[in-house]
Write a protein that binds this DNA or RNA. Sequence first.
DNA 1: GCCGTTTTCGGCCCGACTGTTTTCAGTCG
Length: 569
Amino acid sequence: MKNRLVAKILYEVAELLELQGVQFKPRAYRRAAQAVESSPFPVEDLAAQGRLEELPGVGASIATKIEEIVATGRLGYHEELKEALPVDLYALTRVEGVGPKTAKVLYETLGIRTLDDLERAAREGRIRQVPGLGVKTEERILRGIAEAKGREHRELLGYVLPLARDLVRKLASSGLFQRLEPAGSLRRGKETVGDLDILAVSDRPDQAVAAFLGLSEVEQILAQGPKKASVRLSGGFQVDLRVVPREAFGAALQYFTGSKEHNIRLRERAVARGLKLSEYGLFTEHGQVVAQATEEEIYEALGLVWVPPELREDQGEIAAAERRALPQLLTLQEVRSDLHVHTRWSDGTMDLGSLVRQAERRGLEYVAATDHLRFAQAIPGLSLDDLRRQVDEIQALKEGKPSVQVLAGVEANIGPDGAVDVPRELRLRLDWVVAGVHTHFRQGRAEMTRRLLRAVEEEAVDALAHPTGRLLGERAPYEADWDEVFRLAAQCGTALEVNANPQRLDLPPELIRRALEFGVKLALGTDAHAPEHLDFLEYGVIAARRGWAEAAHVLNTLPLERFLPARKR
DNA sequence: GCCGTTTTCGGCCCGACTGTTTTCAGTCG
């Protein structure tokens, strides 16, 4: 997968062009870079298939350049541009406060080419001597470097969402707020969140900000003013509170929810209609308010239906909103079961009785016990005999007409060659079989694809568990030809799991959307190992929503009597 | 360089903050 490399070079071309004062091209290159970066498909595949121009913002010229990078790892045009400014612009401009113009001045006056050069110059007090820069800038650069080094520090949705709810609850209890709403990437349901933006309306802004700064979780106050305060919590996570005018709350919520790309499209749309959109509202060119109180009004005034935050990524949602063809996104209430749960029979903490109670408490109608076999010495798991005994126990449980039905299931392991470790005769006795890759992650793309295809095709393998194997912040997804996997899965009726564990969220949303295009069915499961993990279902729903999923795409929105015949067999 | 309910040519997103300035460029979100 060369997407990162291509994106990096295109970004740098954008910066270099910007430096030369070239108009508009930087934006074009940046947009193309973003498209490449966020595409789930390897650029080398798109190049081989002649489909590069399907990426938004990529035209004939940039497509040719991408092909060159894919083929040679370099771009002649990029290198020509670099001769004028032979510095590591990509790294330098990632430092907060350093943009292309500053980087150029630093190179011309101090010969700074790399991040190390920059750090040395800042430490030695040479930056303050550059005309136009000063002591403050030098300090900011030093802080920025420290920051850049420890960056990529994003927290999991599963950490930030409960945190945000807790903070909002505490602030609300002060009685100082009329409204409190988390915005930003959290509201969009991104799998990881860099910082938290909370929007507020208060008729006593000073006291409201003071209440925020006084929260017990606050470790350090980074900035404070009448409208905005920033803090770092113990644990290092940054939270901003913005007090916004009541009458413009909708405009502020829209603006601060983003994404940046989605908002740019909206503002372009406003301009096309002779209007102007900002965080204060939608205005005529004479400054008259067209819409500002609610998001719905703003979208409507732009000829769109309201777009759910999870879709606001500039991935076609605006065109769909214009045609009034947005999906009816899945909701948590529509999900009737959890299709991936571990019990004491393997490495979980729940016995079947407590699993039933936990599921009932959450309003589920059925739940699948999917323990795994003892495939690795280190991990507790079932023997085949254990599994047969568990099936018997679940059968006995079913006869007692429990409030929540338990499905006899298993999480089978997919071996390096694609063979599944639970024999076919036993799988056929089970209600629900998920199969996943747990070892040999580093196979090449072709081998991994063959392996997954074989498992997908197996009889009585109902779903592919955590299909890409990614662990957010720890392990990249393994590579496979997902189009091939989805095509076969749709054909065989094998579902793809949306594993709701916040560290996995796998399938990832981009691939969920792709899978749905092939007609693949989804199966939500939490991979719970303890009672509280059943709450993860909400994260799976959010991921599915980001993948444009509707209830009809998800097997476990069906009542049990319709779910059973909807399985592969 | 890209793209199309304003267009195959002529457009291309907005506001605030910061630091270093005597009036604004650069950067950020």
